[in-house]
Design a protein around this nucleic acid. Structure first.
Lengths: 142, 142
DNA sequence: GTATCTGCAAATTCTTTGCAATGTC
DNA sequence: GACATTGCAAAGAATTTGCAGATAC
């Protein structure tokens, strides 16, 4: 489901940057908000093709870039060989726990967020973003 | 300077896994501990070549893997296209602040470490590792 | 001596790019 | 109608792999 407002943000960003609102960009935007999981560029391409849309890999990569730029999508790196993406709009910020069997748990902790700000401050840095990933295994699995 | 103990850990790991202690692996180990910064596989190769060692790129990648496996080296991902490495032994764990002009500041905060453990626990996860990178810009630069 | 290593160059994987045809504004 | 966009296939960048000769144990 395309979050209310996402389309407007996207269009505004396109206009501001002299970019055009094309069918392909719209289809990609929609699909990105359809998927409530982390996905790779290639997976998104496959889904789009399965649904009968005719989009190229190049356009998927190019459009994901645009979506990251306007803040509607996060680009993540969990250490694998390819980048993961997740849509952002309408979601609160969160971090990730990655288990050894590949499960991804999202969490948010206000106290850590505060400490991060404090630490950055101490080093004279204004935070714009952060990445925090906890790796581990399930207590009952080992 | 090769940290005292690192060589022993390396050799023990090799023996345990039926791997051989070769000239190349030793040269790479030494150089990894010579460099007190984050480096890429290719940069390490260049340094080794400059010093007159004859090592191949393949061996550098293969040996870095071994070093990561035995815990002497961390593989990091700051979002660029290539992985960064840093040696670990003798250093306390730390996280990173990455500024928009590419500077990397290391920090450690016990309180966050505790909270991370607590959060993982709450989700039934035993932490084995984590990644935390704060992105921002210098307060006086903008 | 045998099994592991190395270097090389080719192969892979993910991502980006140049270009001619096409679509938006 | 001008200029951005698309798809394609080729290029690029980082990393991995197969293999034949070299080396550690």
């Amino acid at each position: 489901m395309l979050e209310p407002g996402a389309l407007e943000i996207f269009k505004a960003h396109l206009k501001k940057n002299n970019l055009k609102f094309t069918t392909e960009r719209f289809q990609i935007l929609e699909e990105v908000f359809e998927t409530h999981e982390h996905f790779e560029a290639d997976e998104l391409l496959d889904i789009l093709k399965d649904k009968g849309f005719r989009v190229s890999r190049a356009t998927v990569y190019r459009t994901l870039d645009v979506l990251v730029q306007c803040g509607l999508v996060n680009k993540l790196n969990f250490g694998g060989s390819s980048a993961k993406y997740e849509h952002v709009y309408g979601h609160t910020h969160h971090d990730h726990i990655i288990t050894d069997d590949g499960e991804i748990i999202e969490f948010y902790d206000e106290r850590i967020e505060e400490l991060q700000k404090e630490i950055a401050e101490k080093h004279g840095i204004v935070l714009t973003n952060h990445v925090m990933q906890l790796y581990g295994y399930k207590k009952d699995s080992k």
